[in-house]
Computed example of a mutant assay.
Amino acid sequence: MSQPLLLNLRELACGYGEQRIVQNLNLHLNAGDIGCLLGSSGCGKTTTLRAIAGFEPVHEGEIQLGGEVISRAGFTLAPEKRRIGMVFQDYALFPHLTVAENIAFGIGKHPQQRQVVEEMLELVKLGGLGKRYPHELSGGQQQRVALARALAPEPQLLLLDEPFSNLDVELRRRLSHEVRDILKSRGTSAILVTHDQEEAFAVSDHVGVFKEGRLEQWDTPYNLYHEPLTPFVASFIGQGYFIRGQLTSPESVRTELGELRGNRAYTLTPGSAVDVLLRPDDIIHAPHSELKALIVGKSFLGAATLYRLQLPTGSQLEAIFPSHNDHQVGAEVGIEVAADHLVVFAVPGSVAAQLPVPENGVRRYSSTV
């Protein structure tokens, strides 16, 4: 059963002063869901978050929370009246207050303040540490205090601005899962801003990929990876590469890897030049395959090994094989393409019936995150 709409951004344009950073932004978040604004520095994700919080004005469009307009051109509801909680990158804890006093700061008039503080301490696994001061805590513990303080007033929406960026990699990974569990256990809706894909996917139900102030796609992590709507999303999310091909039917593409067939029909004209998205897990080890590749590099990842392969044409691609079999650099291996989610994009300016497979037809990209 779907939850009611909580946050709705309609044709939003916002920025700093007269400078517009974000344009034509549309997205929505249902109650109880966790969303993420993902992108590189300067793409507009933090500007959007600050507009939702009420820290920046709206130039065009509007922001609705719980069916109420909280921002539009010429009107900005004060941040303290929005029932929105905020967790900052630098925690923003009061150094002269104890952990318990920091958590209680936003619920000073609550009739059961002490009970709420104790519940928050237990929720973020800091029970018994209420009398300590922020400088006596680790970075991860300080972030938990900031989360507890933001949750104590029971906000309609929680905003998290790069909340784990000051933590080491392993702690970031662990705390991101813990934060998701905490928010889900309370049914708290949230918007996270990050440049880290792993973090975004671990925490969020829906992720919005930003590029130069515009939202490229708002979707589930699964769909962003397997069903990217634009070449930018395809290149931004995960690892992968484009290989040039020619559409031979609505369901198949001819490439130097052979005839590839997907699980969908394309509307492009047969004969059109296309770029086919492939990821390392789309290439599987097939000892008896006629298609051979030379191993020119490898990286051991534990449960799997990432191989850099060279095709007879000289093109290179990457593949992930289970690490049980240790193939050596210089060896030749049989491969097959197992890409059920075959994603293709039209080549700008291409003409149908022109053979688009060059001698070195693989266009490699690396994630920009």
Results as ranks from 00 to 15, higher is better:
residue 1 M to S: 15
residue 3 Q to N: 15
residue 4 P to T: 12
residue 4 P to D: 12
residue 5 L to K: 12
residue 5 L to I: 13
residue 12 L to V: 14
residue 18 E to H: 14
residue 22 V to F: 06
residue 22 V to L: 08
residue 23 Q to N: 13
residue 32 G to S: 09
residue 44 G to C: 08
residue 45 K to M: 06
residue 59 H to A: 14
residue 59 H to V: 08
residue 67 G to S: 10
residue 72 R to E: 15
residue 78 A to D: 14
residue 78 A to E: 15
residue 79 P to T: 07
residue 82 R to F: 06
residue 84 I to V: 15
residue 92 A to N: 06
residue 95 P to K: 08
residue 100 A to M: 07
residue 103 I to A: 10
residue 105 F to C: 09
residue 105 F to V: 13
residue 109 K to C: 05
residue 109 K to Y: 09
residue 110 H to P: 08
residue 111 P to W: 12
residue 111 P to A: 12
residue 114 R to C: 01
residue 124 V to I: 14
residue 128 G to M: 09
residue 132 R to C: 04
residue 147 L to D: 04
residue 157 L to Q: 06
residue 157 L to F: 12
residue 157 L to I: 07
residue 159 L to C: 09
residue 164 F to P: 06
residue 168 D to I: 10
residue 169 V to S: 13
residue 174 R to W: 03
residue 176 S to R: 13
residue 178 E to T: 11
residue 182 I to D: 02
residue 183 L to I: 02
residue 186 R to P: 00
residue 187 G to H: 04
residue 187 G to D: 07
residue 188 T to C: 13
residue 188 T to G: 01
residue 190 A to Q: 02
residue 194 T to D: 06
residue 200 A to Q: 05
residue 200 A to Y: 04
residue 202 A to Q: 03
residue 204 S to N: 08
residue 208 G to A: 12
residue 209 V to T: 04
residue 214 R to A: 09
residue 217 Q to W: 01
residue 226 H to W: 10
residue 229 L to K: 14
residue 229 L to D: 10
residue 233 V to R: 04
residue 240 G to L: 08
residue 244 R to H: 14
residue 247 L to I: 07
residue 248 T to L: 09
residue 252 S to M: 10
residue 253 V to K: 07
residue 254 R to M: 11
residue 261 R to Q: 11
residue 263 N to Y: 00
residue 265 A to M: 05
residue 277 L to V: 11
residue 289 S to I: 02
residue 290 E to C: 00
residue 293 A to P: 08
residue 299 S to Q: 14
residue 301 L to P: 00
residue 303 A to P: 00
residue 306 L to E: 10
residue 307 Y to V: 06
residue 308 R to S: 11
residue 308 R to N: 00
residue 311 L to F: 08
residue 319 A to V: 05
residue 320 I to R: 15
residue 322 P to C: 06
residue 322 P to E: 04
residue 323 S to D: 10
residue 325 N to Q: 09
residue 328 Q to E: 14
residue 329 V to A: 10
residue 332 E to W: 13
residue 334 G to W: 06
residue 336 E to I: 01
residue 346 A to T: 06
residue 348 P to F: 02
residue 349 G to C: 03
residue 350 S to I: 01
residue 353 A to E: 14
residue 354 Q to T: 12
residue 357 V to A: 02
residue 361 G to A: 15
residue 361 G to N: 12
residue 363 R to K: 12
residue 366 S to H: 12
residue 366 S to K: 12
residue 367 S to E: 11
residue 367 S to A: 14
residue 368 T to C: 07
residue 369 V to H: 13
